[in-house]
Design a protein around this nucleic acid. Structure first.
Lengths: 327, 327
DNA sequence: TCATGGTAGTTAATCGTTTTCTTTATTTTA
DNA sequence: TAAAATAAAGAAAACGATTAACTACCATGA
């Protein structure tokens, strides 16, 4: 059924070694023999078995990317960036979508790390790095992206959202908003917690009280963030901070539908996506993450780690910016 | 460095066979031996090498999904659906993003088909199936999704958009539109051609002429479809058919920015995504593809093909619907 | 006592490549 | 012309797991 190198060798009347060398051009083989081998390859329809090769060489030129939510455009963007970086070096990217499900993440990290890929980039939905460590070989190359974990001792490329959110909230306050609501992301994620604390600090710095009900716990995987906004509006909030891009889009749409104009009836500080103009029409303040650079650095970092397994660990932090509407 | 089954066997003072049987529970091993083996596994930090196993057994429980554009939400949706179907049967999904690039597609199909996965689902950006056939083993399981290819002789799950577009255009005409523009997708794709011909047939059936300039050639990967709409509007088109969802979103946003109200100033027939409400606010006619069912059927089909390699080829066609605004 | 059967484990072949070490044939050199 | 050098290709051992075939041991019953 399946044709192997052995079959080709027999057919061409040479040894498997010669066939291998012809295929990989790894030593001189006379033109006649080469031709004969190629002819046999074509006739038999042979194509080398990647698994056999990987098994022998251990070299895969394959990187895994564990993504929490492929349907979120910001991840789609980062995937593309990472792909481009890897492609430059002849590496391919395998994408795994975890849907923010911890066990799915661990299962897949385990699978990939057990020989399928050379290394992985992980946007983790976990809390503690040791959960990952428990399922991978001790020296397996891994780069965390976007979200930190407790006890992480591996390369990472992170985002610092604190100051962007902080500045944004200050601006809201300075424009007279007192009741400011906050819609969180998944609270187990470092990013969500950082953003919340920026909001809390800004409020505290201006001496404003944060009623517990001002904080609405959401997550980007939920069907809708609308009930959360509605709740905040009902409480009389005049401004709302939204912790991630998916919910931002959801909420803006809700406001439009309800006939509320952002910036007049209510003020929203949300999260935008680099290079995307969808939100232009709302003329609003947005926190913009340097996603492109994030992806580029993560791609470069995993390659560097593969190249130099023993180099010291590198932790990179990028800073998000507040893009301001002129009003 | 890397610890293999052999090391575990030595450490535990048993044979590799016994270790294998302990790990896979593939036959009875005495409790004491089992314990000793487990102890050694823990002490040495052993974890079985997936490649070694795959190499030997040939069983991977891995399916590849070649997607043209991961940033397009409709593909993200389909990916999730396919994942769910496969997960039910213990299969995992590896996603490859081709960005509508033919050579990327072929490279990756070749890679995956050469032993990495059991089979692939492909939303191809190619024209002729023989291009694929040239890079895969003759009996490699493959399911085409969404887009047909010439000379395709493999399973497929396709969409029939013709009638939805046709009906939509007829409706536009019946409402008095005479100059109707059409913005195409990538013309090498079967889907784009089908949609264009539906438009042309509707126009012809009503005796309306289609100026060549009414047809603007776009593609979902382009930065923007705005110049194309602008061109059509400048020509005095009162209605425009948009061939895919990405451009539809792009164009609606442009119209909003420009202060044009869809349905009053100009009439757009675009493509929507199942279960997504983004377009509700525009209250417009939309062609809606049964993407969820599409994904489910593709997932089931590849599994069935893996189970029964010799069953006859199956070609499924689903029909898109025209979702109508009440006006 | 010895065939019988069951139990717990070992041996060794195997999957498809790569690659090191040899071998054989041919040419060059002294 | 024999020895040395070179050229071309072959033989065989890995890589890490699975698994069919086999062995050693012990208990049982006639």
């Amino acid at each position: 059924m399946k044709v192997s190198m052995r079959d080709v060798a027999n057919h061409a009347g040479v040894s498997v070694a010669t066939v291998s060398h012809v295929i990989n051009k790894t030593r001189f083989v006379s033109p006649e023999t080469t031709a004969r081998v190629h002819e046999s390859i074509k006739q038999l329809g042979y194509s080398p078995d990647a698994i056999g090769r990987i098994f022998k060489t251990g070299k895969k030129k394959l990187v895994g990317f564990i993504v929490p939510d492929i349907a979120n455009p910001v991840w789609a963007l980062i995937i593309e960036v990472v792909e481009d970086v890897l492609a430059e070096y002849g590496f391919k990217l395998i994408i795994i979508n975890t849907k923010e499900d911890s066990s799915r993440e661990l299962e897949n990290i385990h699978l990939l790390s057990s020989g399928i890929v050379d290394g992985v980039i992980v946007a983790s939905t976990l809390v503690d790095f040791r959960e990952i460590q428990a399922v991978i070989p001790s020296d397996f190359p891994i780069v965390l992206i976007d979200r930190t974990l407790e006890n992480a001792n591996c390369d990472s490329v992170m985002l610092q959202d604190f100051s962007a959110i902080y500045d944004g909230v200050c601006r809201m306050i300075e424009q007279g908003n007192k009741k400011i609501g906050f819609i969180t992301g998944l609270m187990r994620l470092s990013t969500s917690r950082e953003r919340l604390s920026a909001y809390q600090k800004a409020m505290a710095d201006y001496g404003l009280t944060v009623e517990p009900s001002y904080i609405q716990y959401g997550n980007s995987m939920a069907k809708s963030a609308v009930p959360l906004v509605r709740n905040l509006l009902d409480q009389g909030c005049s401004a709302i901070v939204v912790s991630n891009n998916v919910m931002t889009g959801d909420i803006l749409q809700y406001l439009t539908n309800r006939g509320l104009k952002n910036g007049y009836d209510v003020m929203i500080l949300g999260q935008g996506i680099e290079g995307q103009s969808d939100y232009n029409l709302h003329q609003m303040d947005l926190m913009i993450q340097p996603s492109i650079e994030l992806g580029q650095l993560a791609g470069k970092q995993i390659l560097e780690r593969l190249e130099h397994p023993t180099h010291p660990i590198k932790n990179i932090v990028l800073t998000s910016t507040l893009s301001r509407r002129i009003l």
